[in-house]
Write a protein that binds this DNA or RNA. Structure first.
Length: 571
RNA sequence: CGGGAUGUAGCGCAGUCUGGUAGCGCACUUGAAUGGGGUUCAAGGGGCCGGAAGUUCGAAUCUUCUCAUCCCGACCA
């Protein structure tokens, strides 16, 4: 690739509508251009990087026994009617009618199409398991596209679907995909964690999200410093504190005029937030519920929603609180309250805690669950914090930010039942396929790689997913010797399948340095003044800033060794 | 969909309040010098001031409507 001939429109300044670093750098580096909100063109460098990720995915999916196919992007509404998602999916599904007035949509995902394909062509357990995937452009009409490739409306995704005859087989397939995903992101050269995700009603450990760790990530990842435990906030648990051991004291009512917030009450009563239980009122499908939590904890709404089995929950406003309890917020408590009550696990461990008296301007001391009040249910409904310990090994937990780039999920029979996709088992009984689905955001992975790896000068790609491995700077195109050396090194790279970009533009060295750093090619070769002096060529490593000066005739071998080492991250 | 903001050259912005020849920096073209971290000088090209309707002798500027984009929130295998 010759820089002088390629479409690499770099910019000194980034457009004002770019907010996150990957978006800015990809625009500045000439990787992408926006066509419309959430819709981008991939320029040669951007596409090259995307292709690298795709290639790794293809290799690892093949290794795991999956087959690639390509499904239509335009899908008829009938199938979506059949699965019930034509109604359910909402406005994110872009619908339209064709000239025959038939309703269609752009595929945001392909469960319906793949299930239809399989039900029409697979009829026996002998043909199972089957694992199919595609790499394709998806369209989701996001409410609010943002952050460039991180949350676009049109994006490239690998989506895979598995069909098994038995639960056990489905679990084995799941495990294989889990392994494949680890290999994929490892080979991409990314720091990531596989986290347990909320799998709704299915439960168990059959949903994992693959999170690329980056400070700018949208999601919070809880990870154990000691063992491999990791989960997202909706799912993360903490080791439960031991039951407190002390004698119950007599319940005591104290006046706490005007003290409503946890901090104010604790201050006034001279206790720690850990010794207080707060009462929050939630509206669960329209009905009020009192939620009891330790003073220093916060509600995790997804957990609460799962515990309550509610479709929709939200914090009650002041009026709803008063209507439900007759007490202004700040003094709420479970004692004597008639509404449904749930308590966090930690509350069940506490003895002699302070709590609202359910009466304006009063709190209770030495309250105790069971003795003074009852709750309908208990469970883990709080956010894990950095002060908590690992539920598996009791090691300390840390909270980091992550970008979701992959998600594997055991679907079960939801779609096969809805679409009547069945096979005959070895008893001759008709059974629905047991399905799994496995996604990777390809374009998002590239963006995540940049979020994770960049500095003030630009992107820093891991070698396996960089658009190319080496950029050779001819720092003086006027000078025949320098040009000769640069061209000959470039030729050696071409001959030996090392992907190189040669900057042969008639530009000043400063511009070439800046552009090379911006576009983030892992190895940069400088051929200029110093070559004229002593026939030495400099090789600069983008990630570390380290510069090697090697004799011209050794330059290629040095590059080759370095590249093969950096590319060889295969497990 | 609620709240907020912005649309002026490829990019970044000024000009709008107070109506009167459309500007600046970068990028681009030409020439010269320069040539290891976005160099310098000179001369150029490039605009339906997002769109429509109005007010006015006259609108980038005032009014109304509209379209688009971005931010915060809600939402998100």
């Amino acid at each position: 690739m010759r820089f002088s001939k390629m479409l690499i429109p770099t910019m000194k300044e980034s457009p004002s509508d770019a907010e996150v670093v990957s978006h800015k750098l990809m625009l500045r580096g000439g990787y992408i251009r926006k066509l419309s909100s959430g819709i981008y063109s991939y320029l040669p460098l951007g596409l090259a990087s995307i292709r690298k990720v795709e290639r790794i995915i293809q290799e690892e999916m093949t290794r795991a026994g999956a087959q690639e196919l390509l499904l239509p992007m335009v899908q008829p509404s009938d199938l979506w009617q059949e699965s019930g998602r034509w109604q359910k999916y909402g406005a994110e599904l872009l619908r339209f009618t064709d000239r025959h007035n038939r309703e269609s949509c752009l595929g945001p995902t392909h469960e319906e199409v793949i299930t239809d394909l399989v039900r029409k062509n697979i009829h026996s357990y002998r043909e199972l398991p089957l694992n199919l995937y595609q790499i394709q452009t998806k369209f989701r009409d996001e409410i609010r596209p943002r952050f460039g490739l991180m949350r676009g409306r049109e994006f490239i995704m690998k989506d895979g679907y598995s069909f098994d005859a038995s639960e056990k087989g489905a679990e084995e397939t799941y495990a294989k995909m889990n392994t494949a995903y680890h290999r994929i992101f490892e080979r991409c050269g990314l720091k990531f964690r596989a986290v347990e995700a909320d799998s709704g009603s299915i439960g168990g450990s059959f949903s994992h999200e693959f999170m690329v760790l980056a400070d700018t990530g949208e999601d919070t990842v809880v990870a154990c410093k000691n063992c491999s435990y990791a989960a997202n906030m909706e799912k993360a648990q903490a080791a439960v504190s031991p039951q407190e051991q002390q004698d119950m004291l007599d319940l005591q009512k104290v006046e706490t005029p005007g003290k409503r917030k946890v901090a104010a009450v604790c201050d006034f009563l001279n206790i720690n937030p850990q010794d207080l239980v707060k009462t929050l009122i939630y509206m669960a499908d329209g009905a009020p519920v009192a939620v009891l939590l330790r003073g220093d904890h916060e509600v995790q709404e997804v957990k609460l929603q799962n515990l309550l089995g509610a479709d929709e929950i939200r914090l009650a406003d002041d009026k709803e609180v008063f209507d439900a309890t007759g007490v202004p917020s700040g003094y709420l408590g479970p004692v004597g309250s008639q509404i449904r009550k749930v308590a966090d696990l930690e509350v069940t461990r506490m003895i002699n805690f302070a709590i609202g008296a359910n009466e304006k301007n009063f709190h209770l001391l030495n309250a105790n669950l069971h003795r003074d009040f009852k709750v309908e249910s208990t469970g883990d409904i709080r956010m894990v914090t950095e002060h908590d310990n690992c539920p598996k090994c009791n090691g300390s937990l840390e909270l980091t930010r992550g970008i979701e780039v992959g998600h594997i999920f055991k679907l079960g029979t939801t779609y096969s039942i809805a679409l009547k996709a069945t096979f005959l088992d070895n008893q001759g009984d008709e059974k629905p396929f047991i399905m799994g689905c496995y996604g990777i955001g390809v374009s998002r992975t590239v963006a995540a790689a940049i979020e994770q790896n960049h500095d003030k000068d630009g992107m820093i790609f891991p070698m396996p997913i960089a658009p190319c491995q080496v950029i050779i700077l001819n720092l003086s195109t006027q000078d025949e010797e320098i040009t000769g050396a640069a061209e000959s090194l470039y030729q050696s790279c071409l001959d030996n399948k090392i992907e190189a970009l040669i900057d042969d533009r008639d530009e000043r060295p400063g511009i070439k340095f800046k552009d090379a750093d911006l576009i983030g090619i892992p190895l940069r070769v400088n051929i200029g003044k110093n070559f004229s002096k002593d026939r030495h060529i400099e090789i600069k490593i983008r990630s570390t800033g380290e510069t090697l000066s090697v004799p011209a005739d050794e330059a290629f071998e040095t590059i080759r060794t370095f590249v093969s080492k950096a590319m060889n991250t295969t497990i």
